[in-house]
Simulated assay, not measured.
Amino acid sequence: MVSVLLVDDQPMLRLGFRAVLDGQPDIEVVGEAGNGVEALTLTSALAPDVVLMDVRMPVMDGIEATRRIVASGSRSRVLVLTTFDLDEYVFAALRAGASGFLIKDALPAELVGGVRVVAAGDAAVAPGVTRRLIETFVEHLPVAGAPNGTDPRIAELTSREREVLVELAHGRSNREIGERVFIAESTVKVHVGRMLTKLGLRDRAQAIVFAYEHGIVRPGDA
């Protein structure tokens, strides 16, 4: 069973999400929170597989709550809810450690699929949306990481792993990456896994942020 904590300040939305998720044979909603502070408390107590996190909430917003959950070393993965797919808070959420995001008016199948993907350890960020996020926001965000090549973790990557990271950061799927670098999709998955381990990252979403913050790729690159 995939356990889920719902975090949203609107009770009616939580009710709708619960109805969809509890209707699945492999998903169970284990708790609900109305703000970021409650989310921290319940995440610590319940250790859900996935925290479905709203961004705009009173007391503590979803960005800060996500940052604190990730910093605590919790095994719970955060799936952020946003009103618009180009919401300026989405990239901030990914930078804070979220494993992906969903639009609040997503279809029930998209909600269920997103929860399952994140629970399985992948990132629920569609390649096309990733590209638009990069194009729209990354040029206006402060670069907080070290410049290209100075982070010792980068030196541990093989040339192929670095190549895969570059392609991934452009929002390309495993299939697209394989076609561009002439390797099988299954081999791409292996390289992605090794790259994430060496960089100490949890998923593809964090890898995209890492690549841009460390200058491995830059906005406007092909």
Rank of each mutant, 00 (worst) to 15 (best):
T197W: 14
R131S: 05
V129Y: 11
V129R: 09
A211W: 03
L199A: 05
G200T: 05
P152W: 11
R160I: 12
L133E: 02
V192G: 03
T130Y: 07
L168Y: 01
E135Y: 13
E161P: 11
G149E: 10
K198H: 05
E185I: 09
V181A: 05
M195P: 04
T130I: 09
R160A: 13
A124I: 02
G121T: 00
P147R: 11
L199M: 04
R160Q: 14
A205W: 02
P142F: 06
I208K: 01
M195S: 08
A146V: 11
P147D: 12
A126R: 07
V129A: 12
G149V: 11
G200P: 07
H191I: 05
V138S: 08
T130F: 07
K189T: 13
L196C: 04
F137D: 15
A205D: 03
P147L: 12
G121V: 01
G193P: 01
A211S: 02
R162W: 11
R160K: 15
R180I: 08
D122G: 11
I183L: 10
D151Q: 11
I208Q: 00
G171R: 01
P152L: 10
A146W: 11
R132L: 15
I208V: 08
A123H: 00
H140L: 13
G128S: 15
A169I: 00
M195W: 01
P152I: 10
T136S: 15
G145E: 13
R153Q: 06
R172W: 00
V190F: 09
A205E: 02
I208S: 04
V166M: 10
A211F: 00
P127R: 03
A155W: 13
D151V: 09
A211C: 04
H191Y: 06
G171M: 06
T197N: 13
E161A: 08
V166L: 09
F182R: 14
G121P: 01
E179V: 09
F210S: 08
V181K: 05
R175P: 01
A205F: 00
R194H: 15
P127V: 00
V209C: 04
A123P: 01
V188E: 05
D122Q: 10
G121L: 01
L168Q: 01
R172K: 06
D151E: 12
R131W: 06
N174G: 02
G121K: 00
H140W: 12
R162Q: 14
L133G: 05
S159C: 12
V181C: 07
V188F: 02
G145I: 05
A126P: 06
T158W: 06
F182C: 12
D122P: 06
P127E: 03
Y212R: 06
R153F: 05
V166A: 07
I177K: 01
V164F: 07
V129Q: 10
G200R: 07
D122I: 03
G178P: 09
G149T: 12
G149R: 11
D203N: 13
S186K: 12
R204T: 00
A207T: 04
V190S: 07
L133W: 03
L133M: 07
